[in-house]
């Protein structure tokens, strides 16, 4: 693999990181919740798809079409039942509740599916690729995930800026009390934000599952990727998150070129450098 190839792969991976990170950014932006179970939710989606594919024999795309809305619904319910209550119980409570949720999800997966490493078979599509140049080949799967991620981000952007509910989401992020003076029921608005977050995390989880192997304990390290993408790009900006994801993806991909053991370290160091020297992120956020 050449350097150019590494950059292209990193950019494509970055799109997926961005999609995965969007939910984290949205939940923090609107509700000030850092969802520490974010990574585990993606892994739950991966395992759910795995179980559905092997259990029902349905094609993968049908499973995706089922899983993503199911997660949106789950997200809405999680917010209304669990997180809403924690918002009223002090600033530490949300962190603890999502952390507890993360431990619960991880260990249920461990009991149900064992600690074995799995992959979701995307068929011939997942392994096929075309050549961009002689040394640079692009997998259909990575390209599709990248395009799908960008489409999802664009869709969320349109929702946030063009619809009344989307505006109220951004308004609630600025000032919840005043948003309630506009007639916004914050519980519903928060539910919608969480539903979007869960839907995107499920989509990202399914794509991760097709790209690379997963096991029940991988959630927290995935969460770190998402958090890094959000912070590098700048909180509160969807395009910042996309940029952050790409910076992270390219950094990982280039350092893997030098030494595969450096992959994670390079991402972490870029994240820490951004925190130290540009804490507002590369693209300082304007809108949620």
């Amino acid at each position: 693999m050449g350097w150019l190839n590494a950059i292209v792969q990193g950019l494509l991976l970055g799109g997926l990181y961005a999609l995965f990170a969007t939910g984290l950014s949205l939940m923090f932006g609107v509700m000030r919740i850092v969802n520490l179970a974010h990574g585990d939710l993606a892994v739950v989606a991966s395992f759910l798809a795995l179980a559905l594919v092997s259990g029902t024999g349905l094609p993968l795309w049908v499973v995706m079409v089922v899983t993503v809305p199911l997660f949106a619904l789950l997200g809405y319910l999680t917010q209304r039942v669990l997180l809403q209550r924690s918002l009223g119980a002090g600033p530490l409570a949300t962190l603890l509740v999502t952390f507890g949720l993360s431990i619960v999800l991880q260990n249920i997966l461990l009991e149900v599916f064992s600690a074995d490493t799995r992959t979701l078979d995307g068929g011939s599509f997942a392994t096929a690729s075309f050549h961009l140049t002689d040394s640079t080949s692009v997998g259909y799967l990575s390209l599709t995930t990248f395009l799908l991620a960008c489409a999802a981000l664009a869709g969320i952007q349109v929702f946030l800026s063009r619809t009344g509910l989307g505006r109220m989401l951004r308004a609630s992020a600025d000032d919840r009390e005043t948003a309630s003076l506009m007639g916004a029921d914050s519980r519903h608005v928060y539910g919608i934000a969480t539903a979007i977050a869960f839907a995107t995390v499920a989509l990202a989880g399914l794509m991760f599952a097709m790209r690379s192997s997963f096991d029940p304990s991988i959630g927290p390290s995935r969460l770190i990727f998402a958090f890094e993408a959000v912070v590098i790009g700048g909180l509160g900006s969807l395009w910042g998150t996309l940029l952050g994801g790409m910076v992270l993806g390219v950094a990982q991909s280039l350092s893997a070129q030098v030494d595969p053991a450096l992959t994670l370290l390079a991402g972490h160091l870029i994240f820490l450098a951004v925190l130290a020297f540009r804490p507002q992120g590369l693209l300082a956020g304007r809108a949620a």
Binding site: L82, R85, A93, L96, V97, G100, L101, S102, I103, V104
Partner: peptide, 11 residues
Amino acid sequence: LLGAVGVAAAL
């Protein structure tokens, strides 16, 4: 169980 107890305690 521990996670669930923790969540309950926080809430």
